[in-house]
Amino acid sequence: MTRNRDIPALSAEAAAFARSLIIHEDKSVLGFNKPSGLASQGGGGVGQSLDDLLWAFARSNGKRPRLVHRLDLGTSGVIIAARTQPAAAFLSEAFAGRDAKKTYLALVKGTFSPTDEGVIDAPLVKVEEGGRPRMILARPGRKGAQAARTGWRVLAREGNFALLQLAPETGRMHQIRVHLMSLGCPILGDALYGEGQATGARVMLHAARLEVPHPDGGTLVLEAPPPEDFQIAAARCGLQSGLK
């Protein structure tokens, strides 16, 4: 939480937009369906971010919600924020301890396993290329390498295209995108690890479901249907049946 700070001016339009993204609200947690193109956090030349929009939910004393995890700029879907410091600490520990179960949908192109499901277990390491950070598969013993595991399942296939359901067991930067590239089937629209706009207007990755322990007890389960652009892209690839 941000304490005892002046609340930055947020236009009525921006506040209304922030509230339009809400899919869950209680005294401890806010859940949002983040659109593609909205950054989770600011910095690096980013304009307005979801983090900025959280000022729409600030208290009169300047305390406001805090994001406890992030989604890439191009990724759409479920993301949550904590409304109190105890909730933020609890949820951050849940994500760090891998108690949060995340489910993504991705549209991919390429040649991959004829089987319908599997697990990618491939450590990753961050590198700088042209001043831009990215992740690569790490050789055995590589300094700075981090364990990374992603479960995958094919929901639909059509030629060289497929709709995949993904369950990352770890939360490394760009993990799903790099792992799918390593399988030979990068995500449509991924300019960093795939063919970019030759295959899609944006990274066709959607955070469809999040299951996480709730700070006040029990389990919080949030879902967000794929946005229209994702559904249209799936239909163009002949994969719409997998979204049903």
Rank of each mutant, 00 (worst) to 15 (best):
D6T: 15
D6H: 14
D6F: 09
P8I: 01
A9E: 15
L10Q: 11
L10T: 12
A14V: 00
F17C: 09
R19N: 12
L21G: 04
S28C: 11
L30G: 05
L30D: 09
L30I: 12
F32H: 08
F32E: 10
N33C: 14
K34H: 13
P35Q: 07
P35G: 10
G37N: 11
L38W: 07
A39T: 01
S40M: 01
Q41Y: 01
G42C: 10
G43M: 05
G44I: 10
Q48C: 13
D52H: 13
L53H: 13
L53F: 07
F57K: 08
R59E: 06
R59D: 12
N61M: 10
N61W: 11
K63R: 10
P65H: 12
V68M: 09
R70T: 08
S76L: 12
V78N: 12
A82S: 04
R83V: 06
R83Y: 06
R83N: 08
P86G: 00
A88D: 04
A89W: 00
F90H: 15
A94C: 15
A96L: 14
A96F: 03
A96G: 14
G97T: 12
A100Q: 09
A100N: 03
K101T: 12
K101F: 09
K102D: 06
T103M: 11
L105H: 12
L105R: 02
A106E: 13
S113M: 06
G118D: 10
V119H: 02
A122W: 14
K126P: 03
E128A: 11
G130S: 07
G130M: 13
G131K: 07
P133K: 02
P133N: 01
R134L: 15
R134N: 06
M135R: 06
I136F: 07
I136Q: 13
L137Q: 11
K143D: 10
A145Q: 02
A147P: 00
A147M: 08
A148E: 09
T150Y: 08
G151I: 01
R153Y: 02
V154N: 01
L155M: 08
L155V: 02
A156R: 11
A156W: 04
R157Y: 04
R157Q: 08
E158Q: 15
G159H: 06
N160I: 07
A162Y: 02
L164S: 04
Q165G: 04
L166F: 10
T170F: 08
H174D: 01
R177Y: 01
L180H: 00
M181W: 00
L183E: 07
C185Y: 03
C185G: 02
L188K: 04
G189M: 03
E195W: 00
E195K: 11
E195L: 12
G196H: 01
G196P: 00
T199P: 14
G200R: 11
A201Y: 00
R202T: 08
R202S: 05
L205V: 06
A207N: 06
A207W: 06
A207D: 05
A208H: 08
A208T: 04
A208I: 03
L210P: 14
P213I: 02
H214S: 09
P215Q: 03
G218I: 13
G218C: 12
T219F: 02
L222N: 02
E223F: 05
P225A: 15
D229Q: 05
D229H: 07
F230L: 08
Q231W: 03
I232W: 09
A233H: 01
A233T: 05
R236F: 12
R236W: 04
C237P: 03
Q240F: 06
S241D: 15
G242C: 13
L243I: 08
L243F: 12
K244G: 11
